[in-house]
Amino acid sequence: MKEETLNLKTLETQSFRQFDLKKKRRTGESIIQTLLFLAGILSIFVTIAIVYELGKEAMLFFNDPDVTLGKFFGTTKWQPGIGQYGIWALVSATLVTSFIAILISLPLGLASAIYLSEYASFKARSILKPILEILAGIPTVVYGYFALLFITPILKSIIGEQLQVYNMLSAGIVMGIMILPLISSMSEDALSAVPRSLREAAYAMGATKVETSLQVVLPAALSGIGAALIIGISRAVGETMIVAVAAGSGPNFSFNPLDAAETMTGHIARISGGDLSYNSIDYTSLFAIALMLFLLTLVLNLISQWIVNRFRERYE
């Protein structure tokens, strides 16, 4: 190509052409920005919709002259159809199953997190982490199958006849296995956020690896592990399918893990799965339960996030 045919600055002699830097109307740009903003703000509307809809129906429930807060929180039988409104019949099962789940998942999750973060070689990690990820990715209904048709028979052969076919123990254990990866990965994040210098300080004073991990790193990561624990509880409280399949169907105020009982979530699933007429007390009562669930998990999640944020600021 001939060079003289081209010259970028053909106007170079009058280098200072007049030009206008005034703002241009960029309509397309504004429309796009508005749409993006709407997408961003939609999530707020989802939350508002949840609170509004749950709240509205729950109000209908609590406005029923038959329902009093005293009955709701003060009695232990739940059967709205015949005037029994004791939420404890459902809350007890939620507490028992969640407690068992945490009893299983916290020590196991924490121990595997310590192993992965402090001990495992790069290669071991690359094998072990995906296994935990697979465990985390299995649908909960499959865990339900596993609880009912694998864990329960095994427990039965150990414990014997006192164990009912549907029972909170089996559901709780399997829920613990389900939550394990979550606790493990969150705890691992907390452990690896502890600065190297702290570990080196411990080693330099002649500590062994376990002494360093348990007495220096673990306490330093405690708040992050607390956050993991809280998220774990929140997940256990909200878990539905495992308990719906394996824990039993029918409210039962019992703290004996060998008994069958229905959790708040399990109850919602069973009742809403049947024929349900809108505006019946059965229908509105489900929203009251769901509202309680939502608020409970919301508080737990907020606490956990708050802990994580505070923790992050400390080390970064």
Partner: peptide, 21 residues
């Protein structure tokens, strides 16, 4: 914050939202 929280809402609550809305 809201998005992070929504990620932790139990799925059955979304079911109730879907039922109502």
């Amino acid at each position: 914050t809201n998005i992070n929280n929504l990620a932790g809402v139990p799925s059955i609550v979304y079911g109730m939202l879907g039922l109502a809305i």
